[in-house]
Design a protein around this nucleic acid. Structure first.
Lengths: 203, 203
DNA sequence: CCAGTTGTTGAGCGCGCGTTCTCAAATGAG
DNA sequence: CTCATTTGAGAACGCGCGCTCAACAACTGG
């Protein structure tokens, strides 16, 4: 017993790649409506392999959520707070989601917003994963707003954490509405109104 | 053929009542995860009766969505635009949803937001129903904002339709986030920040 | 009463779900 | 080569799903 010195048959698939594609499927079709058959045929991985590697459908879904969080963290990481005007970069992030939905035939919205709607009741693991993603987004906004306040883009009278929460709500609400009505113009002007009024607060 | 002059056995249930309770179930548990068995046992209506009366599960769900729209229309109807300060009433509507979620053990959020997340891809009937509810909410906000502008609560420089869309996003985003993190304080201050900054725009 | 129409009942249909099992294939150590 | 070990492949499991159906109950006009 001991050191697993003996090597076995090598895998023919890349685990990270499978998670990425599973994430895409869950994102597009939702959790309940994505069946194991859908996954195995789209991923080129047989049921037995999938279950041996990931446990079950729910565990694979959690991996997909974690992967999505990584991606979001790239968008909402240091980039928002770096040098130069911040509000235009916050705007660009929000508008980017609108554009993405507009150029998709079937807007997928946000995996986390979709998940919050569909799967949450009683599922604590998914709930905490969703909460975690929200806090990543909110922290990103907060970093950006702090930089904006430092540079005088917004007034020192603004409650920055509250404003970050507001932007998070705005983003997620945007993701919900864009699924039903991807017409970009109203959405863009709504985002502009929010940012403009935020910038118009005076202390 | 002919006039249905002969009267048959009367129903033992109230159709509207069944729809109301189906709406509650779909709201709490979602569409896919609410089975016909769940419905029949909670509604006290047997499968055959349910199918004879409503068609199928999907049709019953559409009825439930329509019922939800009726309820929302009551909240967002004339009340928002009637006399007196409007912004506090808009605030009360938003805060009301936060309070509702906070006092529920399992926050249900908004049936429409949940539906948009779960069921939309490829379901045109549900999509248009969801869109319809959004426009009810947005129109309600717009009526209120027009009254607010008339009374000087907000500047004439504000793009009212855009602001109404923004409030709709804010509400739906709120509903998404409250499902994962029902802590009311951050949400309330975020709402206040949004309304306060909207009121601080100067023309 | 009967005739005619509709509502109720609950067993039961086929299907696809998430999941498991078995067996052959592939690898490197000894 | 043999052996231990892991992976690939895919048939098969039981279950619960959405849904249907045939027999029976309730009702009123004639």
């Amino acid at each position: 017993m001991g050191y697993r010195s003996i090597v076995a048959r090598p895998r023919t698939f890349d685990e990270q790649d499978v998670i990425d594609r599973a994430m895409e499927l869950f994102w597009t079709r939702g959790y309940e409506t994505t069946s194991i058959t859908d996954l195995t045929s789209a991923l080129g991985v047989h049921p037995g392999t999938l279950y041996r590697t990931f446990g079950d459908k729910h565990a694979l879904f959690l991996r997909a959520l974690a992967r999505y969080r990584e991606r979001l963290a790239d968008d909402f990481g240091p980039s928002l707070a770096e040098g130069g005007p911040v509000l235009p970069r916050i705007r660009a992030v929000l508008i980017g989601w609108i554009d993405l939905a507009a150029q998709e035939e079937q807007p997928r919205g946000c995996l986390i917003a979709n998940t919050a709607g569909e799967v949450l009741p009683g599922d604590d693991e998914v709930a905490s994963s969703v909460r975690c993603v929200f806090s990543v987004v909110e922290d990103g906004f907060l970093q950006g707003l702090r930089a904006a306040a430092r540079q005088g883009e917004i007034s020192a009278a603004v409650d920055l954490p509250a404003a970050a929460a507001m932007l998070t709500m705005l983003l997620e609400g945007l993701q919900v509405i864009v699924k039903a009505d991807p017409d970009p113009r109203r959405l863009v002007s709504a985002v502009d109104t929010a940012l403009l009024s935020l910038a118009s607060v005076r202390g």
